[in-house]
Write a protein that binds this DNA or RNA. Structure first.
Lengths: 349, 349
DNA sequence: CTGAAAGCGCTTACAG
DNA sequence: CTGAAAGCGCTTACAG
């Protein structure tokens, strides 16, 4: 338990309860409860009288009390890095939409890519007794610590980034296939010296994308040099400032497969600053298809992940797990598709 | 009460409760509770023993039960149109961040700009007993219906769009001042025939922006013709297709103050389609400073609203209200500032 | 400093 | 078809 001291009261005036309704109607609380839960056991007349009274007194159901008594939950926690990342915002929108349709409410939590904050946030969320947790882990998360925190209390679904050492359900983009598509696209345009730019080798999604890239290169009989892998954090500024490094390691590169859109947009800035026109002098691809991808100059060839659909799918998978906690844990791959735009238009040299 | 039938159980294995801890330590449940709540009444030795046992048994606090007993709440509902709008996503991030710091959890709800969905979503959220509600109302919301739904149960704060007929706290951007700044900027560049493009007159934010526009025009001794006001829904496609209308009504306009960024980006598309180069042949400004604004071609002169800061402020205002439900309701204006970029670069003709 | 008892608002066997 | 009773997990006066 944390030491926060949250709010004062549920309400100012006191709440209308089943007892109030029961008294007003001259029935027992049990009967009112049966009406509320739509039981067919109640006589139609009684039901009508109770329902009228519920409306008249503006009764609002206290779901927390019901959940306590029934040992159920009507919420699901969603923990992501940051809503200001449009990819996660769309994902969250999809999760919330699908959960809402199933009568669940979304409890939100953000980690800002900090494993410590992630533990704190999860610790606070579990106290609210969610039926399950959808977790898009912060970088460098400690899977064992998370597993210990949630215990067998709360089923979880991990999204996007593999968490070694946990046996929760896992939903991820088809990183490998996506990167292969991007690489093949650049190869088909005649590029041979293609770098892989951005990401960190200790992230599973980065490793998978690199794998897809390498596979495609080798399939084209090109052995990708380790020099062609440039690491960089997934922010625009960082990517722009690593452009120099790219050309130190791979001076004759004519194209790059970027770890994601943010990195690609940063690289475009870095290229422009060096007088290299992205899409004309140098071809590049992103990953994610964030909104900016279609709007940048040149527009960005990328892999569309349909984050909203992923969110819906995550919600559905988690609810399946909630309903059947004993089922085997699953790994589900969400498809991505290549969207060709201006940034890959540069001719190979 | 809705007829949804949410989840099965809080947990698979049964929960560890204060009773379990009390028995294991040979103390009463009251003592365990006092330890949990950090009371100084407990002997240090007893406290240590209890805390060790809490850890050993992996006890997790059941906040719902505590809230029920104490008649408190530790959640706040946040209802917005859509997380896929980056402005609202940033706003939500700010809300969640500030609420988290105060020990509250955020309950999410989206309306998709539908007043019916909004009522349904709020109806479901109040059943979870939030301490308060932050509501960014859907267009054409029925204030009276909302007021009736929430009653005096739950304090609310309205964000962004005035809700006529309610007496809740209200936080809004300084629409009038922002539009005045944009208009003055265009005037200072020599433009005289400036249109106001987008929005609907029945939205309060549109009326306020138009007001700021008119004020600035009149201050420059220009009487803005009603023909210069072109209505259009705030989507990019819609704005692009209304470009024709703009030039029917104001054939000699050289510039436009747009209702918001989305509309401005749509207008840029519409202009380009007619061979008019935005930022060169025609000057325009947006409102909101969404991420795309800096990245479009040309980049968009706009009013920066700092949505994350707004979110934090909304959370703080709401919590003040929760703590002091009797206080007078407030209207707070969040400042905006002009960001000059390429789109307003066109010379006046 | 600790314990026994009552109660938050709801639901669910169990009688009738 | 309806009611009396017990209980979900917690907290809080009130005694001692």
């Amino acid at each position: 338990m944390t030491t926060h001291k949250p709010g004062t009261g549920r309400s100012n005036r006191k709440q209308v309860t089943v007892t109030d309704i029961a008294q007003a109607c001259g029935v027992s609380r049990a009967t009112v409860s049966l009406v509320l839960r739509g039981s067919p056991l109640v006589h139609a007349d009684t039901r009508a009288r109770v329902e009228a009274e519920l409306k008249r007194q503006r009764y609002v159901y206290n779901r927390a009390a019901a959940n306590l008594r029934r040992q159920t939950s009507s919420s699901v926690a969603l923990v992501i890095n940051d809503l200001s990342n449009p990819f996660f915002a769309e994902f969250a929108a999809g999760v919330d939409e699908a959960l809402g349709e199933e009568g669940y409410v979304t409890l939100l939590g953000s980690t800002a890519e900090s494993p410590q904050r992630q533990l704190a946030v999860l610790g606070s969320l579990v106290e609210h007794g969610p039926a399950g947790i959808i977790l898009s882990p912060a970088e460098h998360s400690d899977g064992a610590a998370l597993q210990r925190l949630l215990g067998a209390h709360t089923p979880a679904l991990v999204f996007n980034r593999a968490l070694p050492g946990v046996d929760w359900d896992f939903l991820a983009l088809d990183n490998e296939h996506g990167a292969r598509l991007a690489t093949e696209h650049l190869l088909s345009l005649g590029h041979r010296r293609i770098a892989f730019f951005g990401g960190h080798a200790d992230s599973s999604s980065c490793r998978q994308r690199r794998q897809g890239y390498s596979d495609a290169m080798r399939a084209a009989a090109i052995e990708p040099s380790p020099d062609w892998l440039v690491e960089c954090s997934p922010t625009r500024v960082e990517a722009a400032s690593r452009t120099a490094e790219l050309f130190e390691h791979a001076p004759d590169a004519t194209a790059a497969v970027c770890y994601n859109d943010t990195v690609a947009l940063g690289l475009m800035l870095g290229l422009s600053a060096r007088g290299i026109r992205p899409g004309l002098d140098f071809a590049l691809t992103g990953f994610d298809d964030i909104t900016e991808a279609a709007l940048s100059t040149p527009s960005l060839t990328t892999l569309a992940a349909q984050p909203r659909a992923c969110g819906r799918q995550a919600a559905e998978l988690l609810l399946q797990r909630v309903r059947d906690p004993g089922a085997l844990s699953r790994r589900v791959i969400a498809p991505v598709k290549l969207v060709v735009r201006g940034s890959s238009g540069a001719a190979a040299m």
